Simulated scan of single mutants.
Amino acid sequence: MIVAFTDLDDTLFQTLRKLPPGMQGLTPATLGRNGQPHSFCTPAQAALLAHFEASGITVIPVTGRDPAAMARVTLPFTSWRVLDHGLTILRPDGQVDAEWRDRVLETLHPLQDALEECTVAVSERAAALGCRLSRHTAHDTPFMTVLKHPDADAGRLEQVQLVLEAHLATRGYADLHVIANANNVSVLPRHLGKAEAVRHLREQHFPQAALTLALGDSLSDLAFMNACDLALTPPGGQLLRTLTAAKLPQR
């Protein structure tokens, strides 16, 4: 058995804004809140998914999307699904994995005060910079604070990131960390996420898998990608941009 654990947004599909103008042969992959196609697979992404299906490879989404956002993904995933940055696992029948939920809540409850402090600490600065703040929950429990800028202003998002990182360092909150990409900055649990969910699925449900593949585009995907046997990443994503910009010695 081969299992592919894959990020979704900007790995298997993306919005039109992120595609070359006039690209042909696109396949709708998600719907917006208005019910209209919102994100699309390129011919290469669609070919990869078709190859996985034809080869009998089990494909498991590993995404930051919550259940409502996942419901707007129109690709035919039929196995397990990892949502909420790893804090929710759905079984193939669509029901929440109760064992994983209980483990998540046991870890989340002691972090509530620290998460609240981080949210308060960054709120004023975020508002002054024009960033929108939202709090995300899993299993009716807050687990992440997300800050977005309407124009994806990298400079302003960086300032928000620095505020959060300084607060974590000052308070000694080693169990929380900050992740960032071109669209947002978030603070969430360090030791509870995509990687832990992938390891759980590998150990409990796919221990006999001969090969596990990981697909992701961002630095925040690295942990779960390292939990698999081989990794794939698209050109132009945060991962390859970072590696391309790095001045690494050749040894």
Rank of each mutant, 00 (worst) to 15 (best):
T42L: 09
E106H: 11
Q95R: 14
V185G: 01
A127S: 12
I179K: 12
T137D: 14
V187H: 06
T74M: 15
D151R: 13
G216I: 03
G236D: 01
D7K: 03
G237V: 04
T107Y: 06
Q161R: 15
T63S: 07
V96G: 10
A182M: 09
E99A: 15
A197E: 05
L188M: 12
L168V: 07
V198W: 08
N226S: 14
F52V: 05
Q238E: 09
L188F: 11
G22M: 06
T141S: 01
S79V: 08
D175S: 13
A246F: 12
V160E: 02
T74I: 12
H191D: 13
A214D: 00
T141Y: 05
D102W: 10
R171F: 02
A126P: 00
D84A: 11
L213R: 05
R91D: 09
P21W: 12
A209N: 00
S123W: 14
G237S: 09
T11M: 04
A180S: 14
R91T: 06
G155V: 03
L176Y: 07
L188H: 06
S55L: 07
L83M: 03
V62W: 10
L129H: 05
R171W: 03
G236N: 01
I2L: 15
F143R: 00
R202V: 06
H167A: 10
A154N: 13
T58D: 04
L133G: 08
V198I: 03
Q159M: 02
G172V: 00
V104I: 01
P110V: 03
A69D: 08
L83P: 03
F143G: 04
M144V: 05
G236I: 00
D221L: 02
P61I: 02
P207K: 13
L129K: 05
F52I: 04
L26V: 00
L157M: 05
G25M: 07
C228K: 07
R17P: 06
L87I: 02
G25P: 00
F5L: 09
V62F: 08
P61M: 02
M144Q: 11
Q95N: 09
R199Q: 11
I179T: 11
M23G: 11
V122L: 13
